[in-house]
Amino acid sequence: MLEGTIMGDETVIRELVARRVEAMRAGDVEALVGDYLPEAVAFTLAPPLRHTAPEVQDPEALRGWFASFDSAVDFEVRDLVVEVGGGVAFCFSLNRVSAVPRGGSGAFDLWFRSTLGLREVGGVWRIAHEHTSTPFYMDGSFSSAVDLKP
């Protein structure tokens, strides 16, 4: 590996994102919450507007979310871009989540936008901030545009 170089750091961050995809598919809550810094903040698709570190690092909350499905969660990251330098990085991508809600008749398929802000602490890249969102229609309905696909 090219440790200490921008190319090496980008590779490590891409590997972190790939591990998170596999952890989502496996329902591995410990792996998912373990990627966050103690002071992490997340702006996710679910309310409230801001999730702070105790919530972001709570494996029980994430276990509850996984338990709300009758199927495994399928997860995909597409068009990942990573920018890194000086011990900080950000990456953005289009992500897809799909699963069968508990008691549902079929899977939903949702594409959304994702941005991660990372910091290197003690030689390890960790997530300091996560932001996920869906666009909304600007036609007066203000409906989330959950029907979009890349």
Rank of each mutant, 00 (worst) to 15 (best):
D35W: 02
C91P: 01
R113Q: 11
L116F: 10
L148D: 06
R126G: 04
P47A: 09
L62M: 11
F142P: 09
E22C: 08
G106P: 06
A23H: 02
D147V: 05
G27S: 02
R20K: 14
L148V: 15
G103N: 04
V84C: 08
W125M: 00
V56L: 04
F69K: 02
I13L: 05
F136H: 14
D79M: 10
P48Y: 03
P38G: 07
S93T: 04
R14L: 07
L16Y: 04
Y36R: 03
F90W: 15
V12N: 11
D79G: 10
V100K: 01
H129Q: 14
E130D: 12
E60F: 12
C91H: 00
V77K: 04
L94Y: 11
E22G: 08
V21M: 02
V121D: 09
R63L: 06
G8E: 07
F142Q: 13
V12T: 15
V29F: 00
G103F: 05
V82P: 03
G86F: 05
V21W: 01
G64A: 11
W111F: 13
S98D: 03
D109N: 09
E76G: 12
P47M: 05
A23V: 02
S144I: 12
L37R: 07
E39A: 14
S105I: 10
E10H: 07
V56C: 01
A23Y: 02
L32R: 00
L49P: 11
P38N: 05
P38C: 07
F136K: 13
F136D: 10
P48W: 04
E3F: 13
V146P: 01
L110H: 02
F92A: 13
D35E: 14
E30L: 10
R119D: 06
R25L: 07
S98V: 01
S141Y: 07
L37S: 08
L116G: 02
E76P: 04
E55S: 12
A89S: 03
A31L: 09
G122H: 03
D70T: 05
F136P: 04
V41E: 07
N95F: 03
G117L: 11
F43L: 14
L2D: 15
F92E: 13
P150C: 08
T52S: 12
E3H: 14
E3T: 15
S133F: 02
E120K: 13
F75P: 00
Y36T: 04
A61S: 13
S133A: 12
S114G: 15
R102V: 08
R119L: 11
V81H: 15
V81W: 08
V124C: 10
L49K: 12
H129A: 13
P47N: 06
M1I: 14
G85S: 12
F108C: 03
E55Y: 09
G140E: 04
V77G: 04
A26I: 02
A89W: 00
L37D: 06
T132S: 09
T132A: 09
H51V: 05
F90H: 12
K149N: 14
P48G: 05
V100P: 00
F43I: 13
D147M: 09
A18T: 12
F108W: 06
M138W: 15
A145V: 08
C91W: 00
S143G: 14
A128L: 06
G117H: 09
G123S: 03
E10V: 08
G140A: 06
R126D: 03
G34M: 07
G27H: 00
E30G: 12
T52Q: 10
E15N: 14
E55R: 07
P38Q: 05
P101G: 02
A145C: 09
R126M: 09
G106S: 15
T5H: 06
S143E: 14
